[in-house]
Design a binder for these strands. Structure first.
Lengths: 188, 188
DNA sequence: TGAAATCGTTCCGTAAACGGAACGATCGTG
DNA sequence: CACGATCGTTCCGTTTACGGAACGATTTCA
């Protein structure tokens, strides 16, 4: 990749690898032996001068008994590469759409900003929403009777009335929202 | 590593890649273009005949806007989160993986075949599952006390005990499953 | 104090991952 | 029915990741 001949790769991986290795008191040679890879490979990796193969990454992560993402740090979330829709308090990214015989399902990832409360108008009758919190604490549901859910908890409600989303605890919250819209006249 | 000359790599990655690509309605050529890699690379990857470099994986995961772990399924995942490939009765597709400070979330689409009942062994303590039915009727939850949900309904349960999946009514059922695996020891 | 062991780095030949190009197949279109 | 566009696969030359070996520097031990 480097047009200068000396191809470099993400040095952060090298730092993380060396950190994990030393935290375990392993020598570079010993790690290479356990992972079944060459010392040159480990050395080059720690210096960020190699662009490792998935196989190599598996072997090394396995020898350290960490998930591979502990080394790659997995840039993580969809990076908004999709098209985030901006409301006042809720930023959402559409993840998937499923069209079924009786209904359409939209799955979104929500970022609910702190401090503000967002109200969503009533959907047509029959629409239901299912929300799983994955970070922070969310207060959501029908505007008349919202509920509170922490990370790992789940709330479902009928969305044919106005409903609200808010993050509690002064911190931004994340959640997965599944919206089910039945189409009674079976499409097509 | 393939002493027969024809080196093969994990075919599961290829299947997952093709699934994610097609779910987005992208052609192989288009994905290669967006990721800035050669078509030969994508093709070889989907057929499991290449052992990709990390750089290639980043590029492709980025173009699909999924975390890399959505492709690799990260064998060393925290809490031994077993590969969500179930058995004969349930076919699953990994849709997204979210890595949060306190937990990892995996979202899958399940096809639960008719007639058979699938039992899943207990996950480590703290793992919870959330299932939203999008087609048919599903009987699921702890093996000791499963519940029934029709399309549009939702069931959550603690997955630290054996649990079951079954489609009722003699028809295949579809569902979205969200698995939450807390990683309390903040992986060091 | 010398010899052996082990450390991490570097050199090197081989295997293979890479992108570009060429290929036949499959479309819509005029 | 040609025609161009695009599909996914395959071929090929270049680049480079790979493991083994050689290296000098430290450390360990008799």
């Amino acid at each position: 990749m480097g047009a200068d001949g000396t191809s470099r790769f993400d040095p952060a991986i090298g730092r993380r690898l060396r950190g994990l290795r030393e935290a375990r008191g392993l020598s570079l040679s010993e790690l290479a032996r356990r992972a079944g890879v060459g010392k040159a490979t480990v050395s080059g990796l720690e210096h960020g001068t190699r662009n490792p193969t998935l196989e190599t990454m598996y072997a090394i992560a396995g020898a350290l008994s960490v998930p591979m993402s502990a080394l790659t740090l997995d840039p993580g979330a969809p990076a908004g590469a999709a098209s985030p829709v901006r409301g006042a308090a809720v930023v959402s990214t559409l993840l998937e759409v499923f069209r079924e015989p009786g209904a359409t399902y939209e799955m979104l990832r929500l970022r609910i900003l702190a401090g503000v409360e967002q109200t969503s108008p009533a959907h047509p009758p029959g629409v239901t929403e299912h929300l799983s919190v994955i970070r922070g604490t969310v207060r959501t549901g029908p505007a008349a009777a919202p509920l509170t859910a922490a990370a790992g908890e789940h709330i479902s409600w009928a969305a044919d009335v106005p409903h609200v989303y808010a993050a509690l605890g002064g911190e931004e919250a994340h959640a997965i929202l599944l919206i089910r819209t039945p189409h009674d006249p079976p499409l097509r």
